[in-house]
């Protein structure tokens, strides 16, 4: 499976996929996309890398442990709700700031979903790949 052609194309394609996954994440609020879909694309990209290189290579390149990424994501989503809670609204109410860009706590929440899903699924994928491949 370690053909040079596969390896080289994989590296190129992965870059595009990761970029695309970020694009989907950020446009999600208005166009088809969003944190969950973006995360799945990112995981598939990493899966490609697992097949073309090795699980160990992927772990090394990511640097952070997938579990940490997942926990950061859940923490981010959990935390995004407190902005509303501390300004006297119900927990997780969306707050928006529209001076320059339309930015709001739901985006933060979606980034949390993105990281949690990447971390969670990638963790299973890597463990399984190390066990089986």
């Amino acid at each position: 499976m370690k053909s040079v052609i596969f390896k080289t194309t994989a590296h190129i394609v992965i870059g595009i996929m990761l970029l695309f996954s970020l694009y989907l994440l950020f446009r999600g609020h208005n166009e088809p996309g969003g944190g969950f879909i973006g995360a799945l694309i990112a995981v598939i990209a990493f899966a490609l890398l697992i097949f073309s290189e090795s699980p160990h290579y992927v772990r090394k390149r990511i640097g952070l442990s997938p579990g940490m990424i997942a926990l950061t994501g859940v923490g981010l989503s959990l935390g995004s709700g407190f902005f509303a809670a501390f300004s006297g609204k119900a927990y997780l109410t969306g707050l928006w700031c529209k001076t320059v860009l339309t930015l709001g706590t739901p985006l933060l929440f979606d980034v949390g979903v993105y990281l949690a899903v990447i971390g969670g699924v990638l963790s299973i994928l890597l463990d399984l790949a190390e066990e089986l491949l």
Binding site: H29, P32, T102, G104
Partner: peptide, 11 residues
Amino acid sequence: HGRNIVNVILV
């Protein structure tokens, strides 16, 4: 502030 209803429901 979102046109994608599915995503707005989710987040």
